[in-house]
Design a protein around this nucleic acid. Structure first.
Length: 305
DNA sequence: ATCCAGGAACTGT
DNA sequence: ACAGTTCATGGA
């Protein structure tokens, strides 16, 4: 990670294959999103670092992402952690040149790679957020998933108001560890999902499950295996979390409905592709399945963006 | 109304 | 290992 610290703001270096406005389009995919705000070319996000809430105003000038702090300058070490968060959030460490090289020879990906050039995986550094978001979204349409997330965040997250706008943090596992199934059911979570989420929060709160512990695994397959050992985490959720929180380029939620719909459109099919067909297609994407999936997901929002 | 949605656990074979 | 069933609720 390369960044420059000017105290009152920081600049995080961005690779050539990066287009901030493309990333903003993805971030703007739902008007119900509560974890960030976008106005013009600026992105606002509240972060909690070392027990301190920091409002970040994020913009870009091609070479750098600039982060300003409208509420005041955080300490030196906090600024470093914010730079690290930005780097993970936009997956800035990854060298996309090989992805684009592969995509240029792929019938499905070529047009998408061209259209969304510079779009990077929008990640979720917070493991709890990634797990909960994935579980919330299981087997419901995305609109309703955002409704659930908004209720969840606004009930259990911390917030901060600045110039009439309220900014929210995703609820901590410590907080969720103490809620009851009935509390979440009132927000219209199913009983099952409520149990999964609360159970994960408890396991994270007592130190039984941490991102650090999973990162220490030598083999990334072990991470997926351990994730799937968690109640409520099947193959789809595990792959989603591998993509978004463990930055696994091979993460591929092969049974994902959105992926199927995107491929149906891109291939001009009358029906959705079968799992067998997906296994054939995946071979051509070896090493970049996560990015292929992400770009296909992006294509689903073309009508609305 | 009816189908389905960025699934997973459970049950029976 | 594999297939069918149940869970649950809103969106379109």
């Amino acid at each position: 990670m390369k960044y420059f610290d000017y105290e009152s703001y920081i600049e995080v270096w961005t690779p050539v294959e990066f287009d901030f406005s493309e990333c903003l389009k993805f971030l703007a995919r739902s008007d119900q999103e509560v974890l960030h705000k976008i106005d013009d070319d600026n992105l606002y996000k509240l972060l909690k670092i070392n027990e301190e809430s920091i409002l970040c105003k994020i913009s870009s000038n091609r070479t750098f992402i600039q982060v300003d702090f409208p509420l005041g300058t955080p300490t030196n070490s906090v600024r470093g952690k914010i730079a690290a968060y930005i780097c993970e959030w936009f997956d800035l460490e990854r060298d996309l040149s090989r992805f684009y090289e592969m995509a240029s020879n792929d019938k499905i990906l070529q047009p998408l790679a061209q259209k969304y050039y510079g779009l990077r995986m929008i990640c979720m550094p917070d493991l709890f957020e990634a797990l909960v978001w994935a579980i919330m979204g299981q087997q419901i349409n995305l609109t309703f998933a955002y409704t659930l997330k908004k209720r969840f965040v606004e009930h259990y997250g911390e917030c901060l108001t600045f110039e009439g706008e309220t900014y929210w943090l995703f609820p901590s596992f410590e907080r969720i560890a103490s809620v009851n199934v009935d509390d979440l059911r009132e927000l219209q979570f199913t009983g099952r999902k409520s149990e999964y989420i609360i159970d994960i929060a408890k396991r994270m709160a007592n130190g039984e499950l941490t991102k650090e512990m999973l990162l220490q695994k030598e083999n990334i397959h072990q991470v997926k295996k351990l994730l799937m050992g968690i109640r409520g985490v099947g193959a789809w959720t595990a792959d989603y979390v591998m993509m978004k929180s463990f930055y696994d380029p091979n993460g591929f939620p092969i049974a994902d409905v959105g992926l199927h719909n995107a491929l149906k459109t891109q291939l001009g099919l009358e029906r959705k592709p079968t799992i067998e067909e997906l296994k054939e297609i995946e071979i051509h994407w070896e090493g970049w399945q996560a990015y292929a999936t992400f770009y296909l997901w992006r294509s689903l929002y073309d009508d609305t963006v």
